[in-house]
């Protein structure tokens, strides 16, 4: 059984426009996606900023309500939970956020931030919180002296370690990592990714690892899903996606990563802007930017087709 199973997930946001904000249109931020993640594994979710990755992550954690679709986490239908059950269930699925500064309450010490989960889910008596948080700090590479410091006293990398410890405190099975290293210095990024790999090995937690850069998820991911304008355009094992990308968009993404995609069929880095999801192009949403687009691409929306080797691709041209 998979740890995470997402079927036909759709999320849209109302945007008011026109005079007096009366005219309502809808942004289809997530437009019918399927995802699946095996226990103890990592699924990388990659795409340009604005393509709907964070929305996907938040919908899975039910931090916002999806329009349709089923989300199953460890066999539980998350969308069917009542508010009370949902709160209790949250200990099985946790979130690590992008900007580690704003993700921490400036008024809470590191200890308070990390111990709160223990308190809420009654995972340890109060007199053991301190020991438990010490263990977690040890796990994420922080030391005891950091316990009673406030967020502003830490560096970006340390804050993200606190964010990770905070999420791990409740021993989740699924961790949604929403661009956990994008806001960090390049030198620190690798440390945090390595730390996450170690933690997965030790604790067996499954990751949905969101990034806008294939280079970041390449090594940590078992599988990678490539997202474009609310849809998955290609999905496969990390190696396949990075070694032999099939979708023109995946190839573009790959060629923009320094040191990757060389020696292969090289395409120009993404040209043009990401179109607005409130007014997506017809047919294949990628066609205005696609060098291989044919007339048919403007009319027909390609479906994600699974091939014999387990790869999924939404492009009839290649």
């Amino acid at each position: 059984m998979s740890l995470l199973d997402v079927r036909d997930l759709r999320v849209s946001f109302p945007v008011s426009g026109g005079l007096f904000g009366r005219a309502k249109t809808w942004i289809k931020a997530v437009d019918g996606i399927n995802l699946s993640l095996a226990p103890r594994q990592t699924l990388g979710l990659v795409g340009e900023s604005g393509c709907g990755k964070s929305t996907t992550g938040r919908a899975i954690l039910r931090l916002l309500e999806a329009d349709t679709g089923t989300i199953s986490v460890d066999g539980t239908d998350v969308r069917a939970l009542t508010q009370a059950d949902l709160r209790a269930f949250r200990r099985h699925m946790q979130l690590v956020m992008q900007d580690p500064m704003s993700a921490l309450d400036p008024r809470c010490t590191a200890f308070q931030a990390v111990s709160e989960g223990l308190e809420v889910h009654k995972l340890a008596p109060r007199d053991q919180w301190r020991d438990r948080v010490r263990e977690l700090f040890d796990l994420v590479g922080l030391s005891d002296e950091h316990l009673d410091r406030y967020p502003h006293e830490f560096s970006g990398g340390q804050r993200q370690r606190i964010g990770i410890a905070r999420a791990l405190a409740v021993e989740p099975k699924l961790l949604v990592l929403d661009e956990p290293v994008s806001a960090l210095d390049v030198s620190v990024q690798a440390q945090i990714v390595n730390l996450l790999e170690d933690i997965q090995e030790r604790m067996g937690v499954g990751y949905l690892f969101v990034a806008h850069d294939l280079g970041v998820v390449r090594h940590i991911s078992h599988r990678i899903a490539v997202m474009y304008l609310g849809r998955i355009v290609e999905e496969g094992s990390a190696e396949e996606i990075c070694q032999s990308p099939r979708h023109p968009y995946t190839q573009m993404l790959l060629s923009s990563v320094p040191g990757m995609g060389r020696g292969k069929k090289i395409m120009a880095p993404p040209m043009g802007e990401l179109p607005s999801p409130s007014n997506p192009p017809s047919g294949c949403v990628f066609h205005p930017r696609c060098p291989m687009a044919t007339g048919a691409c403007q009319k027909e929306r390609p479906t994600l087709v699974e091939s014999n080797d387990g790869r999924r691709l939404a492009c009839p041209v290649v």
Binding site: R58, L61, L63, R87, A88, F89, R90, R91, Q94, L95, M97, Q98, D99, S102, A103, L104, D105, P106, E116, G117, V120, H121, G163, R166, A167, V170
Partner: peptide, 14 residues
């Protein structure tokens, strides 16, 4: 709408 409020909700706080 601060991330730490969303983070608190995601941890299961009421």
């Amino acid at each position: 709408r601060q991330p730490y409020v969303i983070a608190a909700r995601s941890r299961g706080l009421s």
